[in-house]
């Protein structure tokens, strides 16, 4: 345990040290303050911005878009993974497509989606969904591949029905992979929706950052950037912890 604690302490030290170094470099003028605000001022700007409520509608917009895209991609992704797992021939045919999927920069399809859905949040939901769904499907496939055959045999020995095998055996055995998929799906949905807002949108956190940049409003820009970084990191660490717990439980079983 003492090593674990040393690792944790060093990690905190690394992060705090990097922030302190940045602060010093900015304060002493090594980094031009017009280029980069000192971290302390970013934090103050972020708190002021959040307290003023000016960006509340944008935050709400971005988060609701991400939430819808995430929920859709988890449901459809798990279903798609299960179908592909059940039909090996389809899976083999789609394999090159799945493997190359993330080589394609999809937000280039945004204008097409705007023409399809109109200028509302639907195109962004579609972009987030497209980015997240395939990661979820691939993780589901991985999870189903790794269900130990002996567990299925045991289920058959106990004469469990299909549904009970699914919920009592397969889902718990694949839970860690499903969690990995959700972690990726959330990250990808968030990344692509912010990117979409950044490029072509009139609302949302990504748009506000681009707007602040174009109007040389460094305080708003860095405040929002810090907010997005903190939210992304917090979401990811939370899901990561959960995933690790599932993995540990599995290795004990």
């Amino acid at each position: 345990m003492s090593r674990g604690r040393a690792v944790l302490a060093s990690r905190v030290g690394l992060i705090v040290g990097s922030i302190a170094l940045l602060e010093i470099l900015c304060r002493t003028g090594v980094i031009n303050p017009l280029t980069l605000l000192p971290p302390s001022e970013m934090a103050v700007a972020m708190v002021n911005l959040l307290a003023s409520g000016k960006v509340a509608p944008d935050i709400e917009r971005t988060f609701s878009t991400v939430a819808i895209a995430f929920a859709l991609s988890v449901v459809v992704g798990i279903a798609a993974g299960a179908v592909l797992h059940a039909i090996p021939r389809l899976r083999r045919a789609l394999d090159p497509l799945l493997a190359s999927y993330y080589a394609v920069p999809f937000f280039v399809f945004y204008p097409v989606l705007v023409a399809f859905f109109g200028l509302n949040e639907m195109p962004l939901v579609a972009i987030g969904f497209a980015a997240a769904m395939v990661a979820m499907a691939i993780s589901t496939l991985n999870g189903l591949d790794r269900v130990p055959p002996v567990l299925i045999k045991v289920a058959r020995m106990h004469r469990l029905g299909r549904l009970r095998t699914l919920f009592l055996v397969v889902v718990p055995a694949a839970a860690a992979s499903l969690m990995t998929g959700m972690k990726l799906a959330l990250a990808y949905a968030f990344i692509s929706i912010i990117a979409g807002e950044f490029i072509l949108s009139g609302k949302g956190l990504g748009y506000q950052i681009a707007y602040a940049y174009n109007s040389f409003d460094n305080k708003t820009m860095y405040g929002l950037m810090l907010f997005v970084l903190l939210v992304a990191t917090a979401m990811n660490s939370l899901l990561h912890m959960w995933e690790q717990r599932l993995l540990r439980r599995r290795s004990r079983a």
Binding site: R11, L36, A187, I191, V228, T233
Partner: peptide, 18 residues
């Protein structure tokens, strides 16, 4: 490793002005 994994998940587009 966890720090890198966290950096991987941030929307890097937001760093574009920087």
């Amino acid at each position: 490793e966890p720090v890198l994994a966290a950096l991987y998940t941030i929307p890097k587009v937001t760093l574009y002005p920087l």
